[in-house]
Computed example of a mutant assay.
Amino acid sequence: MRALGIVSAAVIAFPVFADTVVPARTIRPHQIITEMDVTYAAGDLLSGFGQLSDVIGQEARVALYAGRPILVGDIGPPAVITRNQIVGLRYAAGGIMISTEGRALERGAIGDRIRVMNLGSRATLFGQILEDGTVKVRN
């Protein structure tokens, strides 16, 4: 019984840490993260990443500095549309579909909601980026 108390005290005295994903070098915003950009560091962070596979292929939203943990809000899916890019716009309602061109006023990834300007009317609209790189305009 006495040995069990010593063992449990030793476990409490030495907490176990998991590995946290950190940049191996500074990563600039809008850069795609590769295997060579990240590594593990000792430490447990609730809002960080524990697996390299969760980070590789993502895009840095902010500057990531070597040795500092990568937080959930620091990365996201890669952008498919950049600011000022000419994009296809689609609007569908009541069995009618309208397609035209617009200019992206923001950058974004698939599924993001961005502002676009209709080149014909110069109206600013909001739309969601589709998988094919076009923007589905919402009313």
Score class of each variant (00 low, 15 high):
34 T>D: 02
104 A>Q: 00
42 A>S: 11
105 L>Q: 14
54 D>P: 06
47 S>N: 15
35 E>Y: 00
70 I>K: 06
34 T>N: 04
127 G>H: 03
87 V>L: 09
51 Q>S: 13
60 A>F: 03
67 G>H: 04
136 K>T: 05
126 F>H: 14
94 G>S: 14
48 G>Q: 01
121 S>G: 05
79 A>N: 05
135 V>F: 04
118 N>R: 14
82 T>H: 05
110 I>R: 12
14 F>K: 08
6 I>L: 12
112 D>A: 14
74 D>H: 13
130 L>K: 10
80 V>C: 10
14 F>E: 00
39 T>M: 12
132 D>F: 08
79 A>R: 10
107 R>E: 06
107 R>W: 03
85 Q>F: 05
18 A>Q: 09
80 V>A: 11
120 G>V: 08
28 R>Q: 09
130 L>S: 15
13 A>P: 10
84 N>A: 07
57 G>E: 07
56 I>Y: 01
92 A>H: 07
6 I>N: 07
52 L>S: 00
60 A>Y: 03
30 H>K: 15
62 V>H: 01
12 I>L: 15
31 Q>K: 05
83 R>V: 08
45 L>H: 14
73 G>M: 01
127 G>S: 03
110 I>H: 12
34 T>M: 03
76 G>Y: 13
46 L>S: 03
34 T>G: 07
97 M>G: 02
133 G>C: 07
43 G>L: 14
129 I>Q: 09
58 Q>P: 00
33 I>W: 03
7 V>W: 08
8 S>A: 05
14 F>A: 06
118 N>H: 12
89 L>F: 09
10 A>I: 05
40 Y>I: 04
75 I>D: 01
90 R>I: 06
65 Y>H: 13
97 M>Y: 00
49 F>H: 07
48 G>K: 03
133 G>F: 07
17 F>E: 02
139 N>D: 15
106 E>M: 14
117 M>D: 02
115 R>N: 03
60 A>R: 07
121 S>E: 05
108 G>T: 00
4 L>P: 00
44 D>W: 13
103 R>H: 01
123 A>Y: 09
49 F>K: 03
12 I>F: 11
126 F>R: 13
102 G>Y: 11
15 P>K: 13
51 Q>I: 04
91 Y>I: 13
13 A>W: 14
84 N>Y: 11
10 A>L: 12
20 T>S: 15
97 M>V: 14
